[in-house]
Nucleic acid binder design. Structure first.
Lengths: 210, 210
DNA sequence: TAGATTGTTAATCGATTAACAATC
DNA sequence: TAGATTGTTAATCGATTAACAATC
């Protein structure tokens, strides 16, 4: 999918939010929604929603709104989520285990297809329906799996190595949970999730104690 | 802490990043850093870093840079992380368990002091060093604990109820992992972390398959 | 002093939103 | 047709960054 205008990052983030809402609406057999409905359900301004969609074409009918099925299908296509998207998991600790078992990923067509760890005590054991593999075998394993997405759920000290291995195995997008700035080729897209950062921002908003 | 000018949200998020880096530098006995060093370590533009700090006063010495200890201490104070910050955890499933065992929270002075669940099979059992409590007892429990921060790690369908209970228990900031728009009084600050959203944004960046 | 680096201003850049003609 | 709601423009708002005087 090639998009004429450059799409702002906040637009992409909201697109993913719309998709989740649409998945829910579809399941509940809602047929049509307006941008005002979207505002109620997501908190995103209705004009913002329409502007976001405008980067990708026309989606609605003036006076009517948007067809839920069609909008879901088109956003799904934009985000490359029409078909099952395989994902490699680096790290089979507490967080990795939680991610591997996280059901909502399935609902949006993500599937964690392999879990890697460097702890010999873990290699060969089961993580849900997966057998944990040696992190050293990732290149070989992904020749068969063909995953282009990876998740890093290893300790900070091991994150750069995990990232390098993912890239060697031909992964091009990485979701990184380690609080570390990964140094990678510009062809690789990285997003960081940092629990401590999130809590720290919240702590700032605490009223002065007492 | 009262701040004259309104602080932009991206500034707060970066402040948390600086703090993590400074914690690391402190541990490694680095005494001084420049804004250029910060750029190397965080990817944040040096001017951006200086601008971010300027919302809170003056921190460095022209020609020299910033004292690591002092900068850490001052950012720590700004973010209300000088003293241990107690946090309530809602949901003792896979994700809740991973969060309760997540070491980096400790390093920045966060402490999960109680875990709540509504599953009778879990109530009374151990989660690391905590005994899982009935979610219905949260108000009573937090009278003693006095936590003002909460984490929601329950399924989407239970998230609003969990949030309402946190607010009743006098929690004023919430980190929400459920992909749901929480409806709460404006006095409550919420941040959402959505794994599916993160992966969806990455999926958009996948080169067209083939 | 000379060199380095800050804090801040002002210019640039980008995102949000109100308003409205088009249209179902 | 009248009412509703889209897609898009233009205005507003806010964040980023280059530049530089101040100063250690």
């Amino acid at each position: 999918m090639s998009h004429g205008t450059k799409v702002p990052m906040p637009t992409l983030e909201r697109l993913a939010t719309y998709l989740t809402v649409l998945t829910d609406l579809k399941m509940r057999n809602v047929e049509t929604i307006s941008s005002a409905d979207i505002e109620t359900r997501t908190g995103v301004n209705a004009a913002q929603f329409r502007k976001d969609l405008s980067y990708f074409g026309e989606f609605g009918k003036p006076g009517i709104g948007y067809d839920v099925q069609e909008l879901h299908s088109r956003i799904s296509k934009i985000l490359n989520l029409e078909n099952r998207q395989p994902v490699l998991l680096m790290g089979a600790g507490n967080l990795g285990s939680a991610l591997a078992g996280y059901q909502p990923l399935r609902a949006e067509n993500f599937q964690i297809v392999a879990a890697f760890d460097n702890n010999p005590a873990k290699i060969g054991t089961q993580l849900w329906d997966l057998t944990i593999k040696d992190i050293a075998t990732i290149e070989e394993e992904n020749k068969l799996l063909g995953a282009r997405m990876g998740i890093i759920a290893v300790p900070a000290a091991a994150a750069q190595d995990a990232a390098d291995r993912l890239v060697k195995a031909k992964v091009v997008t990485i979701l990184n949970f380690a609080p570390v700035l990964l140094k990678l080729p510009p062809t690789v897209t990285v997003r960081n999730v940092d629990f401590v950062q999130e809590l720290a921002v919240l702590a700032f908003h605490l009223p002065d104690s007492g």
